[in-house]
């Protein structure tokens, strides 16, 4: 059987909110090392990769590898019934066709069990090679969210450029143009307000703002976001999940015609 008890249940709620509009159905791959998920959006432009390590759970048991086929909208409906401070336990039998979500209130005076039907999903896993990216930028996640939202009101695509001075986001549309530059900034008080640029080669790529906007639904998971770029490769937008792992989004660039 599989069982995972997560003291900070709100993390799971936030993960679902971040991916439920991008991916419809996906397998949660459970093994003794944790829970992993890889899924593409329906148009095969973006890919989501989630890792929740066993060590981040208060209790974790997985007797044999299980692929739990889940409709994310339905799972989100179930998790919305959990309080933000609730402890969430996931449970599934090896041969079962359901998953149980147990919610415990912080002072243990309310225990709820929600049972959800699983589905059979033929998953297509893609191999993501280890890549030395030409540019890696870490910046406040709220700042990235704001920039992407602001640019979306002006254009459909954004050119993201990284030089050793910083990262720039540019767009254009019927009403005009916009260009935002965030410079490397490591002498701020709080580490989470820093913008750091690690660069081997300047890089500039064009992406659909609609997808970048969707990724920023993960902002609540982490105060910082890491953007990794290389010429002619998908951008990686990574939100680290404290003590547990990460939520990564890969987005294919626009290609010159």
């Amino acid at each position: 059987m599989f069982e995972g008890r997560l003291l900070q249940g709100s993390l799971l709620k936030k993960v679902l909110e971040a991916i439920k509009d991008l991916v419809t159905d996906t397998n949660f791959d459970c093994s003794e090392t944790g829970i992993a998920l890889q899924a593409m959006d329906s148009s095969h432009v973006a890919l989501v990769s989630l890792l929740l390590k066993d060590t981040g759970f208060d209790h974790f048991r997985c007797d044999r590898n299980l692929a739990l086929g889940i409709n994310l909208q339905n799972m989100s409906k179930m998790l919305k019934c959990a309080g933000n401070d609730d402890i969430i336990t996931l449970k599934a039998e090896d041969e079962g066709d359901t998953i149980t979500f147990m919610f415990e209130s912080p002072n243990q005076d309310k225990i709820s069990d929600f049972e959800m039907k699983l589905m059979d999903i033929d998953s297509e896993h893609l191999g993501i090679p280890d890549t030395d990216y030409q540019a890696i930028v870490t910046m406040p996640s709220a700042e990235f969210q704001r920039i992407v939202r602001d640019l979306s009101s002006i254009g459909d695509t954004a050119v993201i450029g990284v030089t050793k001075e910083g990262i720039s986001f540019s767009t254009g549309g019927d009403i005009g143009k916009a260009n935002i530059v965030c410079r490397q900034n490591t002498n701020v008080d709080k580490e989470e307000d820093q913008t750091t640029v690690e660069i081997h080669e300047p890089v500039s790529l064009t992406f659909a703002l609609r997808y970048l906007n969707s990724f920023t639904k993960a902002t609540a998971l982490s105060p910082q976001v890491t953007l990794s770029l290389s010429k002619e490769l998908p951008i990686v937008v990574e939100y680290k999940i404290e003590k547990m792992g990460f939520l990564r989004f890969y987005l294919a660039p626009k290609i010159e015609e």
Binding site: P129, P234, A252
Partner: peptide
């Protein structure tokens, strides 16, 4: 603006 790339053309199926 360019054509939208497909993620499967960058990462091979396992």
């Amino acid at each position: 603006k360019g054509a939208q790339g497909n993620i499967m053309s960058f990462f091979k199926k396992k």
